[in-house]
Amino acid sequence: MNGALSTATIVAALVLAVWYLVRTALDRAPDPIDLIAAVVLGVLTAVLVVVAVAGLFDGARPADTGTFAGYLVTTAGLVPTAVILAKMEPTRWGNLILGVGCLVLPVLVLRLQQIASVTVA
């Protein structure tokens, strides 16, 4: 797992989570800027996942490769799913959907790092 990229993803997700929760509290529906910010986070996550997949082919594999792959798929799919649901929900709750997604993402990335740290040669 790429440490710097993981940290950047986690920090970006947490900052955005605060932003979306404030937007929810202010009773605002997601506007284009909210959605674009989520898409940017999704792209950052996609880069992280691609780098992690590439890492599977050179170097030590996680001992629990199956679980690692499962978490990679979930991580890749989470933000796009949240964006689609948020676009279907043009109310304050749309922003809460994005906020929840941004709170779940750091957990997934931390779990990926934990699983990746136990390797087999």
Binding site: A29, P30, D31, R92, I97
Partner: peptide, 25 residues
């Protein structure tokens, strides 16, 4: 998509779907 005003977003019709609003969260 124009910004919804608070009054537009807080009124929830009684027959709104179970899976919308908080339901979608």
């Amino acid at each position: 998509m124009p910004e919804k005003t608070p009054s537009e977003t807080t009124v929830r019709p009684a027959d709104a779907a179970l899976g919308s609003g908080i339901g979608r969260v």
